[in-house]
Each structure stands twice: as structure tokens, then as C-alpha cells.
Write a protein that binds this DNA or RNA. Structure first.
Length: 202
DNA sequence: CAATAGATCATCT
DNA sequence: GATGATCTATTGC
């Protein structure tokens, strides 16, 4: 676990990603996003858990049902935010992967909080440990203030961005089946920073 | 501890 | 009209 960063210091310690970075299959982008930093406004954290959703053949993926009003951003260019509302209560953030027309995406499932902890605590009304702020897909969107208002936002720059460290952290990646789905439940498409304390609960 | 229930609504059948 | 890429509180051992 790292100490909290001031926003300026975090920005200097990291660098922008190009839109090209996101233009690869979701199964490759998902592990590549581990260790990157997700920022929204003055709040943010390091990505420690992701899941890949592949598209038409992956019946667990929203895009497998085809192009609809909700999923249209998945069929567009990569590096955009796919935010959807679920269980009448939660928003989930995905990163659009792959080329235009190939609707792969990566679900961001957990962060290590790095920046704007107080603001995140207030949004979550949370008084427990730091990891509890962002160790789940619904929790992290609430903590960072991400909603469907960010649907389609580009992630290479702007208020909602993903950046990478100038000095890449060392860690091991573990792969498991995805969580909370029925179809394709045994496909090994969940990627985690092995042993990290901020992973989501089973 | 683990299991379960309840919250709550956009989306698709 | 049923379901769901979830979270929290509560119940039960």
C-alpha cells in the first residue's frame, strides 16, 4: 500500500496513455491496465483488478446481444468509458477495447485509493479501512463520482483519465474466472494484482 | 465466520 | 415482467 498522493504529485509521477494503447483485444488490455492509475477529478486510485468481456461470442458480455442504445459505445473506437447501471443501484465502469466494430471491453473491479481520500470517504459515507473505499466495481464508481454522465467519455485525457506510472510497479498477475456471471462462468478472464489487499470480496 | 435478504430500476424479452 | 458484470445489513452457526 502506498501513501496518499497530492493530485499534482500523482500527475507528475504518471504519464498519459494514447488512444492506441486501448486498441487491442480485451483479454490483452485487461492485464495491461493493472497497475495503471484511474483518475476522476481530484480523486483516483491504482487499478488492481479487471475483467475482460470479449463481445459477440462471449455470452456474459452485454455486447453479445448486439448493438443497442446501451451498448453502442462498445462498437465504437477504443479508449472510451462504457458505464452502465445495474441492480437498480450501482454504476459499473468499463474501458472500451479493440478496434471500432469489435465490441470488447474491460470492467474495472477494484482500485487501491491514492488521491482525494477524504472526498471519496464522503461520497461513500465510509469510515472503515482504505481498501473498502474502492474494492468492488460499484464501490469505486461511487467513490470517484463516476456515473452514466461519463458514458462515452474518452479516457486518454479529460476529467476521467487512465494514466501509467513513469516508473512501472513490480507485481505478479493472477488469472481466475470472472465473478457474478452465469454464462461462460469458467472462462479465465479476471486479472488481479496477486495478493493485493484491495481486491474485491468473493 | 457463511449464508441470505432487501434495496431498486434500466434494459431487454 | 424478469433479470442483473452489486453492496450492505442481518441472521444463523
Amino acid at each position: 500500500m502506498r501513501a496518499e498522493y497530492k493530485l499534482g504529485k500523482l500527475l507528475r509521477a504518471t504519464e498519459r496513455l494514447s488512444l492506441k494503447f486501448f486498441e487491442r483485444p480485451a483479454s490483452e488490455l485487461a492485464p495491461a491496465l493493472l497497475g495503471c492509475v484511474l483518475l476522476h477529478g481530484r480523486t483516483g486510485g491504482m487499478i488492481v483488478e479487471t475483467e475482460a468481456y470479449l463481445g459477440l461470442d462471449d455470452l456474459a458480455a452485454h455486447a453479445s446481444r448486439g448493438l443497442t442504445e446501451r451498448t453502442k459505445v462498445l462498437f465504437g473506437p477504443p479508449g472510451r468509458a462504457y458505464v452502465y447501471f445495474i441492480y437498480g443501484m450501482h454504476e459499473c465502469l468499463n474501458v472500451v477495447a479493440d478496434r471500432e466494430g469489435s465490441p470488447g471491453c474491460v470492467l474495472i473491479r477494484a482500485l487501491e485509493p491514492l488521491c482525494g481520500l477524504e472526498e471519496m470517504q464522503a461520497r461513500r459515507n465510509w469510515t472503515g479501512g482504505e481498501c473498502g473505499l474502492t474494492n468492488g466495481p460499484g464501490k469505486l464508481t461511487q467513490a470517484l463520482g463516476i456515473t452514466r454522465a461519463q458514458y462515452g467519455a474518452r479516457l486518454d485525457r479529460g476529467p476521467l483519465t487512465i494514466r501509467r506510472w513513469r516508473e512501472k510497479p513490480e507485481f505478479r498477475v493472477a488469472v481466475t474466472p470472472r465473478i457474478g456471471i452465469r454464462a461462460c462462468a469458467d472462462w479465465p478472464l479476471r486479472f488481479v494484482w496477486a495478493g493485493h489487499p484491495c481486491l474485491s470480496k468473493r
